[in-house]
Nucleic acid binder design. Sequence first.
DNA 1: TTTACTGCAAATATTTTGCAATATC
DNA 2: GATATTGCAAAATATTTGCAGTAAA
Lengths: 165, 165
Amino acid sequence: MDTKTHSDLQEQLTAYIVGKKLRKTEERYTILQQISEYPGHFDIISLHEKLESLNFHVSKATLYNNLNLFIEAGLIVRHFITPQNVQYELRSLAETHQHLICTYCGDVKEIRNQALKTNACNLKLRRFTPEFSSLYIYGTCSRCTYRMNRDRRKREKQETQKKIK
Amino acid sequence: MDTKTHSDLQEQLTAYIVGKKLRKTEERYTILQQISEYPGHFDIISLHEKLESLNFHVSKATLYNNLNLFIEAGLIVRHFITPQNVQYELRSLAETHQHLICTYCGDVKEIRNQALKTNACNLKLRRFTPEFSSLYIYGTCSRCTYRMNRDRRKREKQETQKKIK
DNA sequence: TTTACTGCAAATATTTTGCAATATC
DNA sequence: GATATTGCAAAATATTTGCAGTAAA
């Protein structure tokens, strides 16, 4: 685990909390600590279970509240894969990759492609200050491509046999 | 309204339906017709109301089913702004712009920036066939920036007056 | 005639909200 | 001491599912 990154996160959180005159609660720092240990995406349920397994009990409401706080503080980002599949990720991690999302099964993969990195955050826009950008590439994963081809072949075979009958 | 685009859409839908051995229902073509008239984003509720106002009654379930079908057919795309704010858009429109999403108020704006257009769909990826890509730029809209600065000034003023007392 | 599609309502899943208790500043 | 934060449960919201009836092929 990259402890430097984690203490950076702590500092960022503290700066945000102090700036907004909010309160430094144990929950906030413990939740952030656990988030910093994820090597990639996580969802609310997984995070809740992770905390429970450490005997650190927080309510879902508190998790939601604090994840929103972390998003506003720029520490994490939220990926809306589907309305039923919302994933969170450290912003510093999210900046390193793009997402492939299968339109059929909803599977998410990450790719690292330098050519796709946009300079969206350096844009000078009127009436908007960009902080972070995400590129989502939708398409068909190999498993779904295979499944669909197989189903089509099966269907065509049935058609042929019907005609023979 | 661009009728050429709309008949293109109809043709695409028919091709998809025939290819998958599905059925050409009145609902599908009427829903698609109404979608083609949107100049930008729309959500399920707006679409439902639009259809109701024409005395064309379809259930929400049918709308959801068919929007999913249209997505699979590549006619429309879905933008997950937040879990409570899911927007749809003609794919041909979505390809022309990028999205600015305010982290604080959830407001969505569109920008057209040629430099940000990626060639993600031309990528040769292993185990994935890209169809469509979306770039989301998160940040702070001018209204929220203003609101936050104003609140901070107000807070600081209160602090000062407290010390004076 | 087969079965995909639709409508309705119930079920499911996720996130938000209200409020009392607690903890931070 | 003032009030931000938490936990709990209820409420609100969005989407999916099951099933009976309808309609396309």
